[in-house]
Design a protein around this nucleic acid. Structure first.
Length: 377
RNA sequence: GGGGGUGCGCCACAGUUGGAGAGGUGGGUUGGACUGUAAAUCCAAUGUUUCGGCUGAGUAGGUUCGAAUCCUACCACCCCCA
């Protein structure tokens, strides 16, 4: 994998780059739709490519390991072939499930033992097993197995957890060095910075992670309930330390405004379930603010969902009243149209940011764009 | 025409051996939440009020200390027979 840093905005730390993987190129800054179980919920792969203009999507190690399981995955020839997606894929390591399924797991030095949320059966996720699974899934970017600690965490917990994540990282690096890709394309490891909301821990973690000299670096443990100013402060602190010549991935972030703020602090890659999950729950993101399309006020509004030229084609041809109706009726097409809308919006927003970075107009564009994004309509 | 059954809140359903309940479940409606997806999920409100209460179980009576519950009449709906 290679990363070409094309331009850095003079007024901010925003960067435009080009990431080249075994399954094609990614223009950064980029937003990566989350496709936990080998599908971005409600959206077909054709639509992802043609309408959303997704350049890379996520899969999840923990979830794909439980279902369909690695026997099926290997027989399918990996996730790209299994789900018929020929673009780049990044897999999360299961580290987020250490956080989100905390009540179902136990952490030891060896790894995290989960009681499956499906049938209660016990499974050990270790740095080695997580990376082994990610070898079988065949993602282009594989994530280190980490502990994502909750917010708030005591300093002692955050520090111990950070050291554990660091020790696990060394095992991830060793395992990857001792194993081979299964499907003939390169797999690149991204280590993950932890350290909770403690600046000195974050600094130490960034230095340790950078020292591993992997193809890219990730910032984890944010967007877990901390105040937004803390998220921004830590994102900046990390970006200031993590190497310039490698992509920086802020995991699990965020709202459209979060994206612009973090792009301006030097983040290159994002993923988040908000645009897809919230879409299914009726929340639409637009340049003019946030719409809860279920609200009574849209019931008889026959204007397009979004008439912006970069909006999803289905958002220009279908009306708010129609989507409101579908959602209230629980129709499957509602989730599809709403998800297409939000993901296309996210991708066009970061693409527009990229254009402005390359043109040197990012700062003023960001300043004028931000207020509209978080308005409630 | 005869017999049987059922009637409550926006709707449906369930429940009641006489000790009220502005209660239950589901739906609808009106809002809200959601940040490396246990989420097409979850939460709240949904008679009226001057926030003290008030009114309330088809309608009108009756029995009773006390009735949504028992009795009578009527009304509505459902089922069976003709």
């Amino acid at each position: 994998m290679t990363f070409d840093l094309l331009h850095t905005d003079p007024a901010t730390d925003a960067r435009a780059g080009l990431l080249t993987t075994g399954h094609g190129q990614i223009e950064t800054p980029i937003f990566m739709p989350v496709g936990t179980l080998g599908t971005v919920k409600g959206v077909h792969q054709w639509e992802l490519k043609e309408q959303v203009k997704a350049q890379i999507i996520l899969g999840n190690t923990y979830h794909l390991y439980l279902r369909p399981g690695m026997e099926v995955m290997e027989a399918a020839g990996g996730l790209h072939r299994f789900m018929h997606w020929d673009g780049p894929i990044l897999t999360d390591s299961g580290g987020y499930q250490v956080f989100s399924l905390a009540h179902r797991r136990k952490i030891t030095e060896a790894g995290a033992t989960f009681a499956s949320h499906i049938d209660g059966s016990k499974h050990l996720f270790s740095p080695e097993s997580s990376l082994g699974i990610q070898r079988t899934i065949g993602a282009d970017i594989v994530m280190a197995f980490d502990e994502c600690p909750p917010y708030p965490s005591t300093r002692k917990y955050a520090e111990d957890s950070m050291h554990l994540t660091h020790r696990w990282l060394e095992r991830c690096v060793a395992f990857l060095g001792d194993s081979q890709p299964k499907y003939g394309h390169e797999q690149s490891l991204f280590p993950i910075v932890q350290g909770g909301s403690y600046d000195d821990l974050r600094t130490r973690s960034c230095e340790f992670i950078a020292g591993q000299d992997q193809p890219g670096n990730a910032i984890g443990g944010l967007s877990v309930g901390e105040p937004i100013p803390d998220m921004y402060r830590i994102a900046k602190l990390c970006c200031d330390i993590l190497p310039r010549d490698k992509p920086r991935y802020l995991m699990g972030v965020g709202t459209p405004a979060n994206l612009l703020e973090c792009i301006s602090r030097g983040v290159d890659m994002f993923d988040c379930v908000l645009p897809s999950r919230n879409a299914r729950h009726g929340m639409l993101y637009t340049r003019d603010g946030i719409i809860n399309i279920r609200n009574a006020r849209w019931k008889n509004d026959h204007s397009p969902i979004d008439d912006h030229p970069e909006a999803a084609p289905t958002s220009r041809t279908h009306t708010k009243a129609y989507l409101c109706h579908l959602l209230r009726c629980g129709e499957l097409l509602a989730g599809q149209l709403a998800t297409l809308h939000n993901l296309a919006f996210y991708l066009s927003l970061v693409q527009e940011a990229r254009t402005h970075i390359l043109n040197g107009t990012f700062h003023s564009w960001k300043t004028s764009t931000l207020p509209g994004l978080e308005r409630k309509r």
